[in-house]
């Protein structure tokens, strides 16, 4: 139940989130919104694959989709959206080209890798959750920390930086708060993965679920002004 319901809820939330983001993109344009929309779709695909595994068992195609979209690409693509929001277009485009090439490389590596599902029960893992241990071919799993590191710096760092800038100027409180929520939400799947490495069952799926909830709420907070905000206090 835990290994099916939780990722299913994560997946549904992600797709609903993607709808809202892409709706905003349709109205306002902005490459950052398009990439966030794509990233949240990746999040949803990853969650759905986890649900599928919990409900129906091993399927190599589902595993490859989960690994590519859920483990490798999602953080980096969400972060790339933030790059487009904050960086100069030339830098953002250059990084997008690198990310695109890297993603294509990851696609080839993941879909040509040899798999062994029995390896998901090695070490501290019970096999009840999907894990990259099923990948036998070398040079595949090493991709994940690089993409995730890029995602941490751009998505978490970018949201924190945005929050800091609004806070420093004491303007747009809703965006300060929304970005803080986004930054924290983006870290939860990473913590879930970290505690999963330490053998804590369910940590990964819990991190992903609460992560997408907080990301979604942060997005809604950041895009919804809080009405009249106190902008000044007179000094005596």
């Amino acid at each position: 139940m835990f290994n099916t319901l939780l990722p299913l809820l994560s997946s549904i939330t992600s797709f609903v989130f993607a709808f809202f983001v892409l709706k905003r993109y349709a109205a306002r344009k902005g490459t950052h919104l398009l990439l966030w929309g794509i990233g949240t779709i990746f999040y949803g695909i990853g969650g759905f694959c986890e649900f599928y595994y919990g409900a129906f068992g091993w399927n190599p195609l589902v595993f490859r989709l989960w690994y590519l979209f859920g483990a490798v690409l999602v953080a980096a693509w969400l972060g790339q959206g933030t790059v487009y929001l904050l960086a100069k277009p030339r830098w953002a485009n250059a990084l997008m080209i690198l990310l695109g090439l890297g993603s294509l490389y990851a696609l080839v590596k993941v879909f040509t890798a040899e798999l062994d599902p029995s390896l998901m029960t090695t070490g501290v893992h019970t096999g009840s959750e999907l894990s990259g241990h099923a990948i036998v071919t070398s040079g595949v799993r090493i991709l994940t920390p690089f993409f995730n590191l890029y995602g941490v710096i751009t998505l978490v760092g970018g949201a924190a930086y945005s929050a800091y800038i609004f806070w420093r100027k004491r303007i747009l409180l809703h965006r300060t708060l929304g970005n803080i929520m986004i930054a924290i939400g983006a870290t939860l799947p990473a913590f879930g993965g970290f505690f999963s490495r330490l053998g804590i069952p369910g940590a990964l799926y819990l991190g992903e679920f609460f992560g997408v909830i907080l990301l979604f709420l942060g997005f809604l907070r950041a895009t919804t002004p809080m009405g009249e905000t106190r902008t000044a206090e007179t000094t005596a």
């Binding site: 490798v72 994940t144 690089f146 993965g193 970290f194 999963s196 490495r197 990964l204």
Partner: peptide, 18 residues
């Protein structure tokens, strides 16, 4: 912290879940 963990996993100093 997460950057250090990512680098540690990339260098093989820390086991990766993914």
């Amino acid at each position: 912290f997460l950057a250090v963990v990512s680098i540690a996993v990339a260098l093989g100093w820390f086991p990766g879940a993914y």
